[in-house]
């Protein structure tokens, strides 16, 4: 893969990553860079390992007892699987939004305040209020919920819940945001809002999004990586991948021959 440049812009980079679930190898020798100014999309058919790989980037696979990761993944040049890396710190720097909206069964305010509170980001109630407002504004939810911050987060619509989860992730000021098929449980209108939000957030955070929807990848990302059967088949600028893929398999997939 000629595209494997290590530029100074790379926020995260992976080199020769293998992931095993027990005996089964889910990810085979993946190397990729995530740039700070870009939205990077992982595409590929179901079961290709794109979500698994995403979860190695903030070590969420640690919660799966049988999972084992080989190779090197760095955040700002620091190996995140090194013994000296604190996984709690890592996850505060690399936030995550899940496939299904998962607000806590607390109020909207408390959902957003959760992260800042545990990380001690606010010295006073006023500061916390400010963080909550700022995060909800960035998540594009403030206008809709500002009069009912005390309502339960689970009472919102699916799309609002997902934006709440994005706001919750933003509130701890992460450097990278990982999104695991954030729109797959949402209707088209809610999806459009999330996509708009991703475009707004671009530049402030390095964003990695896993998606099934190729139009979505084309709309929101600047770089795209195509996974198939646990391997990274091809990566490059999104326009190039979609208009002029080098690999036959990539071409077959994006033209809808399988997937």
């Amino acid at each position: 893969m000629a595209d494997m440049q290590t530029t100074t812009k790379s926020k995260m980079s992976a080199r020769g990553v293998n992931v095993f679930y027990g005996e089964k190898q889910a990810i085979k020798d993946v190397s990729i860079d995530v740039d700070v100014d870009d939205v990077t999309a992982f595409i590929g058919p179901s079961g290709c390992g794109k979500s698994t790989f995403l979860r190695t980037l903030n070590r969420m696979n640690d919660t799966v007892a049988s999972a084992r990761v080989e190779g090197e993944i760095t955040l700002d040049g620091e190996n995140i699987y090194a013994p000296s890396m604190d996984v709690v710190q890592l996850r505060a720097r690399v936030g995550m939004v899940f496939q299904k909206p998962n607000p806590f069964p607390k109020s909207i305010y408390e959902n957003v305040a959760y992260g800042p509170r545990i990380h001690g980001l606010a010295a006073s109630k006023a500061e916390l209020d400010e963080i909550v407002e700022k995060s909800l504004r960035r998540a594009g939810l403030w206008e809709e919920v500002k009069d009912r911050l005390g309502d339960s987060g689970t009472a919102l619509s699916g799309g609002q819940q997902q934006r709440l989860c994005i706001g919750r992730a933003i509130a701890v000021e992460p450097e990278v945001i990982l999104m695991d098929e954030p729109c797959s449980a949402l209707d088209p209108i809610a999806t459009a809002k999330i996509e708009e939000l991703i475009l707004d957030l671009r530049g402030n955070y390095a964003i990695v999004i896993v998606t099934h929807n190729m139009q979505q990848a084309a709309r929101v990302s600047q770089r795209t990586a195509f996974f198939h059967l646990g391997r990274l088949v091809e990566q490059g600028p999104t326009t190039e991948i979609f208009t002029n893929p080098r690999e036959e398999r990539t071409k077959d997939y994006i033209t809808g021959r399988y997937g």
Binding site: M60, Q89, A92, N102, P103, F104, G115, I118, R168
Partner: peptide
């Protein structure tokens, strides 16, 4: 309590 709730909290960097 759904696993998603636990993951959500851990992914925020909660212990």
């Amino acid at each position: 309590v759904p696993q998603a709730m636990r993951d959500g909290s851990l992914a925020m960097g909660a212990t």
